[in-house]
Design a protein around this nucleic acid. Sequence first.
DNA 1: CAATTGATGTAAGAGCCATTCACATGAGTT
DNA 2: AACTCATGTGAATGGCTCTTACATCAATTG
Lengths: 222, 222
Amino acid sequence: MSWRKQSGRSERGYHHGNLKEALLQAALDLIAEKGPGGFTFAEAARSAGVSPAAPYRHFRDRDELISSIAERGFLQFEKVLAAAWDEGRPDTFSAFERMGRAYLTFARDEPAFYSAMFESGLPLDGNPALLAASERAFAVIRATAERLAALAPPGAGRPPALMVALHIWSMSHGIASLFARGDAARRKLPMSPEDLLEAGVLIYLRGLGFATERPPAGTPGE
Amino acid sequence: MSWRKQSGRSERGYHHGNLKEALLQAALDLIAEKGPGGFTFAEAARSAGVSPAAPYRHFRDRDELISSIAERGFLQFEKVLAAAWDEGRPDTFSAFERMGRAYLTFARDEPAFYSAMFESGLPLDGNPALLAASERAFAVIRATAERLAALAPPGAGRPPALMVALHIWSMSHGIASLFARGDAARRKLPMSPEDLLEAGVLIYLRGLGFATERPPAGTPGE
DNA sequence: CAATTGATGTAAGAGCCATTCACATGAGTT
DNA sequence: AACTCATGTGAATGGCTCTTACATCAATTG
Protein backbone atom coordinates (compact mmCIF):
# COMPACT_ATOMS: atom_id res chain seq x y z
CA MET A 1 0.00 0.00 0.00
CA SER A 2 1.31 3.39 -0.87
CA TRP A 3 1.28 5.30 2.34
CA ARG A 4 3.10 7.99 0.68
CA LYS A 5 0.70 10.05 -1.32
CA GLN A 6 -2.80 9.48 -1.99
CA SER A 7 -4.42 12.26 -3.90
CA GLY A 8 -3.36 12.30 -7.47
CA ARG A 9 -1.34 9.49 -8.88
CA SER A 10 1.27 7.21 -7.69
CA GLU A 11 4.04 8.10 -5.35
CA ARG A 12 6.11 11.12 -5.98
CA GLY A 13 9.18 12.43 -4.26
CA TYR A 14 9.65 15.87 -2.94
CA HIS A 15 9.39 17.23 -6.44
CA HIS A 16 6.40 16.75 -8.59
CA GLY A 17 8.20 16.63 -11.88
CA ASN A 18 5.43 18.03 -14.02
CA LEU A 19 3.60 20.44 -11.81
CA LYS A 20 2.98 23.16 -14.33
CA GLU A 21 1.08 20.84 -16.62
CA ALA A 22 -0.72 19.23 -13.73
CA LEU A 23 -1.86 22.62 -12.50
CA LEU A 24 -3.12 23.66 -15.89
CA GLN A 25 -5.04 20.44 -16.23
CA ALA A 26 -6.47 20.70 -12.75
CA ALA A 27 -7.53 24.27 -13.39
CA LEU A 28 -9.26 23.25 -16.60
CA ASP A 29 -11.20 20.59 -14.80
CA LEU A 30 -12.16 22.89 -11.98
CA ILE A 31 -13.23 25.72 -14.23
CA ALA A 32 -15.28 23.38 -16.35
CA GLU A 33 -16.91 22.05 -13.24
CA LYS A 34 -17.55 25.15 -11.21
CA GLY A 35 -17.25 28.09 -13.53
CA PRO A 36 -14.39 30.48 -14.08
CA GLY A 37 -14.92 32.25 -10.80
CA GLY A 38 -15.26 29.11 -8.78
CA PHE A 39 -11.75 28.02 -9.49
CA THR A 40 -9.16 28.54 -6.81
CA PHE A 41 -5.43 28.35 -6.88
CA ALA A 42 -5.40 26.43 -3.65
CA GLU A 43 -7.72 23.76 -4.91
CA ALA A 44 -5.71 23.28 -8.06
CA ALA A 45 -2.67 22.75 -5.88
CA ARG A 46 -4.61 20.27 -3.80
CA SER A 47 -5.64 18.26 -6.85
CA ALA A 48 -2.05 18.15 -7.91
CA GLY A 49 -1.07 16.97 -4.47
CA VAL A 50 1.22 19.86 -3.60
CA SER A 51 1.18 22.59 -1.02
CA PRO A 52 -0.70 25.85 -1.66
CA ALA A 53 2.56 27.68 -2.17
CA ALA A 54 3.92 25.41 -4.85
CA PRO A 55 2.03 26.92 -7.79
CA TYR A 56 3.85 30.18 -7.26
CA ARG A 57 7.00 28.57 -8.59
CA HIS A 58 5.26 28.29 -11.94
CA PHE A 59 2.83 31.18 -12.12
CA ARG A 60 3.22 34.66 -10.75
CA ASP A 61 -0.34 34.60 -9.52
CA ARG A 62 -3.77 33.26 -10.18
CA ASP A 63 -4.33 35.55 -13.14
CA GLU A 64 -1.24 34.31 -14.88
CA LEU A 65 -2.53 30.76 -14.71
CA ILE A 66 -5.84 31.84 -16.18
CA SER A 67 -4.00 33.75 -18.87
CA SER A 68 -2.07 30.63 -19.75
CA ILE A 69 -5.28 28.73 -20.07
CA ALA A 70 -6.82 31.43 -22.22
CA GLU A 71 -3.78 31.41 -24.44
CA ARG A 72 -3.92 27.67 -24.90
CA GLY A 73 -7.61 27.99 -25.50
CA PHE A 74 -7.03 30.41 -28.35
CA LEU A 75 -4.45 28.13 -29.90
CA GLN A 76 -6.79 25.20 -29.73
CA PHE A 77 -9.63 27.37 -30.99
CA GLU A 78 -7.52 28.32 -33.95
CA LYS A 79 -6.86 24.67 -34.69
CA VAL A 80 -10.52 23.74 -34.43
CA LEU A 81 -11.65 26.58 -36.67
CA ALA A 82 -8.94 25.94 -39.22
CA ALA A 83 -9.74 22.26 -39.30
CA ALA A 84 -13.41 23.01 -39.83
CA TRP A 85 -12.65 25.50 -42.56
CA ASP A 86 -10.26 23.04 -44.18
CA GLU A 87 -9.10 25.50 -46.76
CA GLY A 88 -12.63 25.93 -48.00
CA ARG A 89 -13.10 22.36 -49.14
CA PRO A 90 -15.22 21.07 -50.69
CA ASP A 91 -16.66 24.50 -51.33
CA THR A 92 -16.51 27.85 -49.66
CA PHE A 93 -20.04 27.86 -48.38
CA SER A 94 -20.25 24.48 -46.77
CA ALA A 95 -16.82 25.00 -45.25
CA PHE A 96 -17.99 28.32 -43.92
CA GLU A 97 -21.00 26.82 -42.31
CA ARG A 98 -18.90 24.04 -40.86
CA MET A 99 -16.71 26.63 -39.23
CA GLY A 100 -19.70 28.34 -37.66
CA ARG A 101 -20.77 25.07 -36.13
CA ALA A 102 -17.26 24.47 -34.90
CA TYR A 103 -17.38 27.80 -33.11
CA LEU A 104 -20.49 26.79 -31.19
CA THR A 105 -19.20 23.31 -30.56
CA PHE A 106 -16.06 24.70 -29.04
CA ALA A 107 -18.02 27.02 -26.77
CA ARG A 108 -20.11 24.10 -25.60
CA ASP A 109 -17.45 21.44 -25.31
CA GLU A 110 -14.70 23.55 -23.83
CA PRO A 111 -16.45 25.78 -21.35
CA ALA A 112 -13.28 26.18 -19.36
CA PHE A 113 -11.29 27.45 -22.31
CA TYR A 114 -14.14 29.59 -23.49
CA SER A 115 -14.60 31.16 -20.08
CA ALA A 116 -10.94 31.89 -19.72
CA MET A 117 -10.79 33.33 -23.21
CA PHE A 118 -13.84 35.54 -23.17
CA GLU A 119 -15.28 35.86 -19.72
CA SER A 120 -12.38 36.15 -17.37
CA GLY A 121 -12.00 39.88 -17.82
CA LEU A 122 -8.28 39.64 -18.38
CA PRO A 123 -6.60 42.70 -19.79
CA LEU A 124 -5.67 41.92 -23.38
CA ASP A 125 -3.05 44.59 -23.48
CA GLY A 126 -0.02 43.93 -21.38
CA ASN A 127 -0.12 40.33 -22.45
CA PRO A 128 1.31 40.12 -25.95
CA ALA A 129 1.29 36.34 -26.10
CA LEU A 130 -2.39 36.21 -25.27
CA LEU A 131 -3.22 38.95 -27.70
CA ALA A 132 -1.25 37.21 -30.42
CA ALA A 133 -2.99 33.91 -29.81
CA SER A 134 -6.33 35.66 -29.91
CA GLU A 135 -5.45 37.31 -33.18
CA ARG A 136 -4.29 34.09 -34.74
CA ALA A 137 -7.68 32.57 -34.04
CA PHE A 138 -9.43 35.56 -35.50
CA ALA A 139 -7.15 35.38 -38.52
CA VAL A 140 -8.78 32.10 -39.45
CA ILE A 141 -12.18 33.73 -39.53
CA ARG A 142 -10.75 36.60 -41.41
CA ALA A 143 -9.22 34.35 -44.04
CA THR A 144 -12.58 32.77 -44.70
CA ALA A 145 -14.15 36.19 -44.97
CA GLU A 146 -11.48 37.07 -47.46
CA ARG A 147 -12.59 34.21 -49.67
CA LEU A 148 -16.20 35.15 -49.31
CA ALA A 149 -15.59 38.78 -50.09
CA ALA A 150 -13.71 37.82 -53.20
CA LEU A 151 -16.66 35.75 -54.34
CA ALA A 152 -19.23 38.41 -53.61
CA PRO A 153 -21.07 39.68 -56.67
CA PRO A 154 -19.67 43.07 -57.47
CA GLY A 155 -23.12 44.59 -57.62
CA ALA A 156 -22.54 47.39 -55.21
CA GLY A 157 -18.88 47.16 -54.44
CA ARG A 158 -17.15 44.32 -52.65
CA PRO A 159 -17.60 44.23 -48.92
CA PRO A 160 -14.44 44.72 -46.88
CA ALA A 161 -13.33 41.30 -45.76
CA LEU A 162 -12.42 42.54 -42.31
CA MET A 163 -15.89 43.86 -41.74
CA VAL A 164 -17.46 40.63 -42.87
CA ALA A 165 -15.19 38.72 -40.54
CA LEU A 166 -16.16 40.94 -37.63
CA HIS A 167 -19.83 40.50 -38.36
CA ILE A 168 -19.57 36.75 -38.53
CA TRP A 169 -17.45 36.62 -35.42
CA SER A 170 -19.87 38.85 -33.53
CA MET A 171 -22.93 36.85 -34.42
CA SER A 172 -21.22 33.57 -33.61
CA HIS A 173 -19.94 34.92 -30.35
CA GLY A 174 -23.30 36.41 -29.44
CA ILE A 175 -25.13 33.17 -30.07
CA ALA A 176 -22.48 31.18 -28.25
CA SER A 177 -22.55 33.47 -25.24
CA LEU A 178 -26.29 33.78 -24.98
CA PHE A 179 -27.48 30.35 -25.95
CA ALA A 180 -24.77 27.77 -26.23
CA ARG A 181 -23.36 27.74 -22.72
CA GLY A 182 -24.35 25.82 -19.66
CA ASP A 183 -25.12 22.17 -19.95
CA ALA A 184 -28.83 22.34 -19.50
CA ALA A 185 -30.65 25.45 -20.61
CA ARG A 186 -29.60 29.00 -20.26
CA ARG A 187 -32.41 30.42 -22.28
CA LYS A 188 -35.02 28.49 -24.14
CA LEU A 189 -34.86 28.59 -27.88
CA PRO A 190 -37.25 27.48 -30.59
CA MET A 191 -34.29 26.14 -32.53
CA SER A 192 -30.79 24.91 -31.85
CA PRO A 193 -28.02 27.48 -31.61
CA GLU A 194 -26.47 25.82 -34.62
CA ASP A 195 -29.56 26.28 -36.72
CA LEU A 196 -29.97 29.81 -35.48
CA LEU A 197 -26.44 30.67 -36.52
CA GLU A 198 -26.78 28.95 -39.85
CA ALA A 199 -29.96 30.83 -40.66
CA GLY A 200 -28.44 34.13 -39.56
CA VAL A 201 -25.35 33.66 -41.65
CA LEU A 202 -27.40 32.63 -44.62
CA ILE A 203 -29.49 35.76 -44.40
CA TYR A 204 -26.39 37.85 -43.95
CA LEU A 205 -24.77 36.32 -47.00
CA ARG A 206 -27.87 36.98 -49.00
CA GLY A 207 -27.57 40.57 -47.90
CA LEU A 208 -24.09 40.59 -49.35
CA GLY A 209 -25.57 39.59 -52.66
CA PHE A 210 -25.02 35.87 -52.64
CA ALA A 211 -27.79 33.79 -54.04
CA THR A 212 -28.73 31.20 -51.48
CA GLU A 213 -30.27 28.01 -52.68
CA ARG A 214 -32.92 27.84 -50.04
CA PRO A 215 -34.98 30.64 -48.63
CA PRO A 216 -33.30 31.44 -45.38
CA ALA A 217 -36.40 32.93 -43.91
CA GLY A 218 -37.58 29.81 -42.22
CA THR A 219 -40.28 28.75 -44.65
CA PRO A 220 -40.67 25.02 -44.50
CA GLY A 221 -40.68 24.80 -48.28
CA GLU A 222 -37.58 23.56 -50.02
CA MET B 1 -28.27 67.69 1.14
CA SER B 2 -27.44 65.01 3.54
CA TRP B 3 -29.27 65.61 6.68
CA ARG B 4 -28.18 62.33 7.90
CA LYS B 5 -25.85 59.54 7.07
CA GLN B 6 -23.17 60.09 4.55
CA SER B 7 -21.54 57.33 2.65
CA GLY B 8 -18.49 57.23 4.81
CA ARG B 9 -18.40 59.18 8.01
CA SER B 10 -20.81 61.51 9.55
CA GLU B 11 -22.96 60.46 12.37
CA ARG B 12 -25.51 57.89 11.85
CA GLY B 13 -27.49 56.21 14.51
CA TYR B 14 -27.21 52.58 15.22
CA HIS B 15 -29.38 51.96 12.21
CA HIS B 16 -28.52 53.09 8.78
CA GLY B 17 -31.99 53.77 7.55
CA ASN B 18 -31.47 52.96 3.92
CA LEU B 19 -28.85 50.30 3.85
CA LYS B 20 -30.26 48.17 1.09
CA GLU B 21 -30.18 51.00 -1.39
CA ALA B 22 -26.81 52.16 -0.17
CA LEU B 23 -25.39 48.69 -0.68
CA LEU B 24 -26.78 48.41 -4.17
CA GLN B 25 -25.32 51.75 -5.08
CA ALA B 26 -21.97 50.93 -3.54
CA ALA B 27 -21.88 47.63 -5.38
CA LEU B 28 -22.67 49.36 -8.63
CA ASP B 29 -19.81 51.76 -8.14
CA LEU B 30 -17.40 49.04 -7.17
CA ILE B 31 -18.31 46.77 -10.05
CA ALA B 32 -17.99 49.63 -12.49
CA GLU B 33 -14.61 50.43 -11.06
CA LYS B 34 -13.05 47.04 -10.60
CA GLY B 35 -15.04 44.59 -12.64
CA PRO B 36 -17.71 42.16 -11.58
CA GLY B 37 -15.27 39.83 -9.90
CA GLY B 38 -13.46 42.59 -8.09
CA PHE B 39 -16.46 43.52 -6.08
CA THR B 40 -16.67 42.29 -2.52
CA PHE B 41 -19.49 42.23 -0.09
CA ALA B 42 -17.21 43.47 2.65
CA GLU B 43 -16.10 46.50 0.72
CA ALA B 44 -19.65 47.46 -0.13
CA ALA B 45 -20.44 47.31 3.56
CA ARG B 46 -17.42 49.46 4.27
CA SER B 47 -18.51 52.11 1.75
CA ALA B 48 -21.87 52.19 3.39
CA GLY B 49 -20.23 52.56 6.76
CA VAL B 50 -21.60 49.43 8.34
CA SER B 51 -20.07 46.26 9.66
CA PRO B 52 -19.34 43.35 7.33
CA ALA B 53 -22.25 41.40 8.74
CA ALA B 54 -24.89 44.06 8.15
CA PRO B 55 -25.52 43.29 4.48
CA TYR B 56 -26.77 39.85 5.43
CA ARG B 57 -29.87 41.46 6.86
CA HIS B 58 -30.79 42.52 3.33
CA PHE B 59 -29.33 39.90 1.04
CA ARG B 60 -29.01 36.19 1.64
CA ASP B 61 -25.52 36.24 0.21
CA ARG B 62 -23.27 37.93 -2.27
CA ASP B 63 -24.96 36.31 -5.24
CA GLU B 64 -28.32 37.64 -4.25
CA LEU B 65 -26.99 41.16 -4.27
CA ILE B 66 -25.56 40.63 -7.73
CA SER B 67 -28.84 39.15 -8.85
CA SER B 68 -30.64 42.23 -7.64
CA ILE B 69 -28.30 44.38 -9.62
CA ALA B 70 -28.76 42.25 -12.70
CA GLU B 71 -32.50 42.48 -12.32
CA ARG B 72 -32.43 46.24 -12.03
CA GLY B 73 -30.09 46.29 -14.97
CA PHE B 74 -32.57 44.41 -17.12
CA LEU B 75 -35.36 46.74 -16.10
CA GLN B 76 -33.28 49.76 -16.99
CA PHE B 77 -32.14 48.08 -20.17
CA GLU B 78 -35.74 47.55 -21.11
CA LYS B 79 -36.46 51.22 -20.56
CA VAL B 80 -33.48 52.32 -22.60
CA LEU B 81 -34.31 50.04 -25.50
CA ALA B 82 -37.98 50.95 -25.43
CA ALA B 83 -37.16 54.64 -25.36
CA ALA B 84 -34.83 54.26 -28.31
CA TRP B 85 -37.39 52.27 -30.24
CA ASP B 86 -40.08 54.82 -29.40
CA GLU B 87 -42.83 52.81 -30.99
CA GLY B 88 -41.02 52.85 -34.27
CA ARG B 89 -41.13 56.60 -34.77
CA PRO B 90 -40.51 58.29 -37.05
CA ASP B 91 -40.08 55.17 -39.10
CA THR B 92 -39.33 51.56 -38.41
CA PHE B 93 -35.83 51.56 -39.81
CA SER B 94 -34.40 54.59 -38.13
CA ALA B 95 -36.00 53.56 -34.86
CA PHE B 96 -34.49 50.14 -35.29
CA GLU B 97 -31.06 51.52 -35.83
CA ARG B 98 -31.46 53.82 -32.85
CA MET B 99 -32.21 50.84 -30.70
CA GLY B 100 -29.07 49.08 -31.85
CA ARG B 101 -27.03 52.08 -30.84
CA ALA B 102 -28.80 52.18 -27.52
CA TYR B 103 -27.75 48.60 -26.92
CA LEU B 104 -24.10 49.46 -27.38
CA THR B 105 -24.40 52.66 -25.41
CA PHE B 106 -25.86 50.77 -22.50
CA ALA B 107 -23.06 48.22 -22.58
CA ARG B 108 -20.51 51.02 -22.55
CA ASP B 109 -22.13 53.39 -20.08
CA GLU B 110 -23.35 50.83 -17.60
CA PRO B 111 -20.58 48.31 -17.35
CA ALA B 112 -21.66 47.31 -13.89
CA PHE B 113 -25.18 46.49 -14.96
CA TYR B 114 -23.98 44.82 -18.10
CA SER B 115 -21.51 42.67 -16.23
CA ALA B 116 -24.05 41.62 -13.68
CA MET B 117 -26.57 40.86 -16.40
CA PHE B 118 -24.42 38.90 -18.79
CA GLU B 119 -21.07 38.06 -17.29
CA SER B 120 -21.74 37.11 -13.73
CA GLY B 121 -22.58 33.52 -14.52
CA LEU B 122 -25.72 33.57 -12.42
CA PRO B 123 -28.12 30.73 -12.93
CA LEU B 124 -31.15 32.11 -14.76
CA ASP B 125 -33.36 29.31 -13.61
CA GLY B 126 -34.20 29.33 -9.95
CA ASN B 127 -34.55 33.08 -10.13
CA PRO B 128 -37.92 33.85 -11.68
CA ALA B 129 -37.73 37.59 -11.10
CA LEU B 130 -34.42 37.82 -12.88
CA LEU B 131 -35.60 35.65 -15.72
CA ALA B 132 -38.75 37.73 -16.08
CA ALA B 133 -36.80 40.97 -16.16
CA SER B 134 -34.49 39.51 -18.77
CA GLU B 135 -37.42 38.45 -20.87
CA ARG B 136 -39.09 41.81 -20.64
CA ALA B 137 -35.98 43.41 -22.07
CA PHE B 138 -35.85 40.88 -24.85
CA ALA B 139 -39.53 41.46 -25.52
CA VAL B 140 -38.68 44.96 -26.66
CA ILE B 141 -36.30 43.62 -29.26
CA ARG B 142 -38.83 41.04 -30.22
CA ALA B 143 -41.54 43.64 -30.72
CA THR B 144 -39.35 45.56 -33.12
CA ALA B 145 -38.61 42.34 -34.98
CA GLU B 146 -42.33 41.77 -35.20
CA ARG B 147 -42.72 45.06 -37.02
CA LEU B 148 -39.86 44.32 -39.30
CA ALA B 149 -41.08 40.87 -40.14
CA ALA B 150 -44.49 42.26 -41.00
CA LEU B 151 -42.87 44.69 -43.38
CA ALA B 152 -40.67 42.14 -45.05
CA PRO B 153 -41.39 41.60 -48.70
CA PRO B 154 -43.20 38.32 -49.00
CA GLY B 155 -40.82 37.12 -51.65
CA ALA B 156 -39.86 33.87 -50.03
CA GLY B 157 -42.12 33.72 -47.04
CA ARG B 158 -42.01 36.00 -44.06
CA PRO B 159 -39.20 35.44 -41.63
CA PRO B 160 -40.26 34.37 -38.16
CA ALA B 161 -40.09 37.44 -35.96
CA LEU B 162 -38.60 35.52 -33.07
CA MET B 163 -35.72 34.35 -35.20
CA VAL B 164 -35.06 37.84 -36.47
CA ALA B 165 -35.08 39.13 -32.90
CA LEU B 166 -32.60 36.48 -31.85
CA HIS B 167 -30.29 37.31 -34.72
CA ILE B 168 -30.33 40.98 -33.97
CA TRP B 169 -29.85 40.39 -30.29
CA SER B 170 -26.97 38.03 -30.92
CA MET B 171 -25.12 40.37 -33.22
CA SER B 172 -25.62 43.30 -30.89
CA HIS B 173 -24.53 41.28 -27.93
CA GLY B 174 -21.52 39.89 -29.75
CA ILE B 175 -20.33 43.32 -30.80
CA ALA B 176 -20.98 44.75 -27.37
CA SER B 177 -19.11 41.95 -25.64
CA LEU B 178 -16.17 41.86 -27.97
CA PHE B 179 -15.66 45.49 -28.82
CA ALA B 180 -17.68 47.89 -26.77
CA ARG B 181 -16.43 47.17 -23.27
CA GLY B 182 -13.54 48.56 -21.33
CA ASP B 183 -12.82 52.24 -21.39
CA ALA B 184 -9.68 52.14 -23.44
CA ALA B 185 -9.34 49.49 -26.07
CA ARG B 186 -10.20 45.87 -25.81
CA ARG B 187 -9.58 45.05 -29.43
CA LYS B 188 -8.71 47.45 -32.13
CA LEU B 189 -11.28 48.08 -34.77
CA PRO B 190 -11.21 49.85 -38.12
CA MET B 191 -14.59 51.33 -37.31
CA SER B 192 -16.68 52.14 -34.29
CA PRO B 193 -18.79 49.38 -32.77
CA GLU B 194 -21.82 51.47 -33.64
CA ASP B 195 -20.91 51.61 -37.30
CA LEU B 196 -20.04 47.96 -37.31
CA LEU B 197 -23.43 47.07 -35.91
CA GLU B 198 -25.25 49.39 -38.24
CA ALA B 199 -23.54 47.91 -41.27
CA GLY B 200 -24.19 44.38 -40.07
CA VAL B 201 -27.85 45.01 -39.47
CA LEU B 202 -28.19 46.71 -42.81
CA ILE B 203 -26.71 43.74 -44.60
CA TYR B 204 -28.88 41.40 -42.61
CA LEU B 205 -32.01 43.34 -43.49
CA ARG B 206 -31.04 43.27 -47.12
CA GLY B 207 -30.81 39.54 -46.76
CA LEU B 208 -34.38 39.55 -45.55
CA GLY B 209 -35.38 41.24 -48.74
CA PHE B 210 -35.51 44.85 -47.67
CA ALA B 211 -34.25 47.34 -50.16
CA THR B 212 -31.67 49.49 -48.44
CA GLU B 213 -31.11 52.96 -49.73
CA ARG B 214 -27.38 52.79 -49.57
CA PRO B 215 -25.11 49.95 -50.40
CA PRO B 216 -24.34 48.40 -47.05
CA ALA B 217 -21.17 46.83 -48.29
CA GLY B 218 -18.88 49.54 -47.16
CA THR B 219 -18.48 51.47 -50.34
CA PRO B 220 -17.55 55.02 -49.52
CA GLY B 221 -20.52 56.27 -51.47
CA GLU B 222 -21.75 59.81 -50.93
C1' DC C 1 -46.70 56.38 29.10
C1' DA C 2 -44.03 52.48 29.71
C1' DA C 3 -43.17 47.60 28.14
C1' DT C 4 -42.60 44.66 24.45
C1' DT C 5 -40.97 43.20 20.16
C1' DG C 6 -39.23 42.74 15.51
C1' DA C 7 -36.10 44.73 12.31
C1' DT C 8 -31.62 46.09 11.84
C1' DG C 9 -26.78 46.44 13.28
C1' DT C 10 -22.48 44.74 15.77
C1' DA C 11 -18.72 41.69 17.62
C1' DA C 12 -16.40 37.74 17.35
C1' DG C 13 -15.07 33.82 15.10
C1' DA C 14 -14.71 29.67 11.83
C1' DG C 15 -13.08 28.37 7.60
C1' DC C 16 -11.42 29.47 3.07
C1' DC C 17 -8.26 31.80 -0.06
C1' DA C 18 -4.10 34.45 -2.15
C1' DT C 19 0.28 35.59 -1.40
C1' DT C 20 4.92 35.83 0.79
C1' DC C 21 9.16 34.37 3.03
C1' DA C 22 12.43 31.58 5.22
C1' DC C 23 13.81 27.11 4.75
C1' DA C 24 14.13 22.07 2.88
C1' DT C 25 15.04 18.78 -0.78
C1' DG C 26 17.25 16.68 -4.35
C1' DA C 27 18.64 16.38 -9.49
C1' DG C 28 22.18 17.66 -12.26
C1' DT C 29 26.77 19.46 -12.49
C1' DT C 30 31.52 19.81 -11.34
C1' DA D 1 31.59 14.17 -2.82
C1' DA D 2 30.41 19.12 -2.79
C1' DC D 3 27.74 22.64 -4.89
C1' DT D 4 23.84 24.93 -6.66
C1' DC D 5 19.55 26.15 -8.26
C1' DA D 6 14.94 24.97 -9.44
C1' DT D 7 11.21 23.29 -7.05
C1' DG D 8 8.41 22.27 -2.98
C1' DT D 9 7.06 23.05 2.21
C1' DG D 10 5.36 25.39 6.55
C1' DA D 11 3.97 29.04 8.68
C1' DA D 12 2.16 33.49 8.77
C1' DT D 13 -0.50 37.68 7.18
C1' DG D 14 -4.44 39.74 5.83
C1' DG D 15 -8.85 39.61 3.44
C1' DC D 16 -13.22 37.50 2.37
C1' DT D 17 -17.80 35.00 3.13
C1' DC D 18 -20.96 33.72 6.23
C1' DT D 19 -22.82 32.34 11.03
C1' DT D 20 -24.17 33.01 15.75
C1' DA D 21 -25.11 35.42 19.83
C1' DC D 22 -26.01 39.78 21.38
C1' DA D 23 -27.17 45.10 21.16
C1' DT D 24 -30.04 48.93 19.81
C1' DC D 25 -33.97 51.27 18.58
C1' DA D 26 -38.55 52.50 16.37
C1' DA D 27 -43.02 51.25 16.42
C1' DT D 28 -46.79 48.99 18.53
C1' DT D 29 -49.71 48.17 22.22
C1' DG D 30 -51.84 47.69 26.65
